Amino acid sequence: MGRAAIIRMRKKRVNRSFYGSLSLFVLLAVMGGFMALPLLYAINNAFKPLDEIFLFPPRFFVRNPTMDNFSDLFNLVSGSWVPFTRYIFNTLFITGLGVVGHVLLASAAAYPLAKHRFPAKKAMFGIVVLALMFTSQVTAVPNYIIMSWLGFVDTYWAVIIPAFAFPLGLYLMKQFMEQIPDALLEAAKIDGASEYRIFWTVVMPNVRPAWYTLIILLFQMLWGTNGNGFIYSEQLKTLNFALGQIIQGGIARAGVGAAVALMLMSVPITLFVFFQSRIIETMATSGMKD
């Protein structure tokens, strides 16, 4: 590397003083602490006795922490005529199958949209973009009609199949796959790799940030679903529905409701914390260019 190139690199280097770095750190710390306040409040509420929950003005931090809210919740779920483990299994089955199925289908559909030419390609992608404008409330009636026609009402599939068609996942995978250099795929074809092998061994490893992000989004959506409107049998109800029924017992169950809220939010947050490091580690592969 020549002397002129080294001088140019030094000029481009960001020159930030110690106080500038300290100010930026303090600003980010304050913003991070502010965004963590709802989570801290939910954690404190879960351990508050009833007299502190209804105290006015409310206190942010718990003064006399107790486990009574969780013990009351355990007693309530133990008295259910449907085993509580059944609700957990239903939620895990719907969430797991929905997430895995959507990641695979979205990736398989995004690959030809991103790396192949065929008639009506732009029109198909335009339909995907248009589908992003519609919320789940808008598509609830068409989804029910389709699920009823397929005979999936009051089954797991009434919730899983619509999750397969999550348009944001297809859009995200397509955008990430477009960043993969065409020269990389052409080199694999020259080596004799088939389209399926290119997809599994070249494309999918390079779009890891996209499908990690999809896992987080789909898990959060399916973990919080209650299946209302599609599932009627008590044996097929989800954990969110069961816990929601428990806390509808009036103000006496306000503490139990706080414990339920903490339990429901803890699993998606744990998943996000786990996959966040994976996304950062693999983000370098998303910036490849020809």
Rank of each mutant, 00 (worst) to 15 (best):
G2I: 04
R3M: 11
A4N: 12
A5E: 15
I7D: 11
Y19W: 15
L28E: 09
M35F: 15
L40G: 12
A42K: 10
K48N: 02
L50W: 00
L55A: 12
F56A: 12
P57F: 14
P58T: 05
R59M: 14
T66E: 01
S78F: 09
G79T: 10
P83D: 08
F84Q: 03
V100W: 10
K121L: 08
F125D: 03
I127K: 02
V129M: 15
L130M: 14
V138Y: 08
T139K: 07
F152Q: 08
D154Q: 03
Y156S: 01
L168Q: 09
A183P: 05
G192Y: 05
S194D: 09
R197E: 14
I198S: 00
V202K: 03
M204C: 05
P205W: 03
V207E: 02
R208S: 10
P209W: 01
F219R: 03
F219D: 02
M221L: 10
F230W: 05
L236W: 04
K237F: 03
T238H: 05
F241Q: 03
G244Y: 04
Q245E: 12
G249H: 07
G250C: 08
V260Y: 00
A261L: 14
M263E: 04
L264M: 15
L264K: 04
V267A: 06
F272C: 09
Q276E: 08
R278Q: 14
M283K: 07
A284N: 11
